[in-house]
């Protein structure tokens, strides 16, 4: 039995069949176990409520993933409401800003090393490890915002609306996240390539 066959949904088996997958999916975006578990719970309960609407046109797994995405956005929104957004904007101050990156003549103040494309499966694995570690090094709230944009494919306009931040602030935060990730990868990814082992 594959999950593409259209069968009656079986909520009793959801945790066993999709629990771990949904949790890992949520962890990728939310980056905290408690938040991820809550999102999965919300997702399963919402799935239960919406059972009557499940038509079987998508697999159960795809259908639940769709619900989970909404719950992930809800969670990020809730996190940002609980503490005001100024807070998140201050968080961006912890990341490298332009004064660290550029000298007074607006030239790069540090040499930039070219990152190699991961070319083998092992390379790929190391690259994802490095990327994940670098994302984890961002302040969690910023990481969540960044992931919604980069991996969730949410557009900036939607994020601003959902999180009640201005386009300029979002832009500044994303810019700093991108700069910080790049710097971190230049160290970790290149480091892991040179030593043949991941930098911990």
């Amino acid at each position: 039995m594959t999950d593409t066959t259209s069968i009656a949904p079986d909520p009793e088996s959801w945790v066993e069949r999709y629990g771990n997958y949904l949790f890992r999916y949520a962890m990728t975006f939310l980056r905290e176990e408690k938040l991820a578990e809550d999102a999965v719970q919300e997702c399963l309960l919402a799935g239960l409520e919406a059972l009557a609407k499940y038509t079987g046109s998508a697999s159960e797994k795809t259908w639940l993933t769709g619900i989970l995405k909404h719950k992930i956005v809800d969670s990020v929104r809730q996190q940002s409401r609980e503490k005001p957004m100024e807070d998140i904007e201050n968080l961006a101050d912890a990341l490298p800003d332009e004064d660290d990156l550029f000298d007074e003549t607006a030239h790069w103040s540090h040499p930039i090393v070219s990152l190699d494309d991961p070319s083998t499966a092992l390379d790929n694995k190391r690259f994802w490890e490095a990327l994940d570690k670098c994302i984890s090094a961002l302040p969690p709230k910023l990481a969540r915002l960044f992931m919604l944009r980069e991996l969730g494919g949410m557009d900036s306009e939607n994020i601003c609306q959902e999180l009640q931040i201005t386009a300029t602030n979002l832009w500044t935060m994303l810019y700093r996240c991108r700069m910080s990730l790049r710097q971190c990868l230049e160290v970790r990814w290149l480091g892991s390539r040179r030593s043949g082992d991941a930098v911990v």
Partner: peptide, 19 residues
């Protein structure tokens, strides 16, 4: 996206039971 999540991360037995 979950393929970015390190392999050792997963639902703990306790969390699974709660769910």
């Amino acid at each position: 996206p979950e393929s970015l999540c390190p392999p050792h991360i997963g639902l703990s037995p306790e969390a699974e039971e709660r769910l």
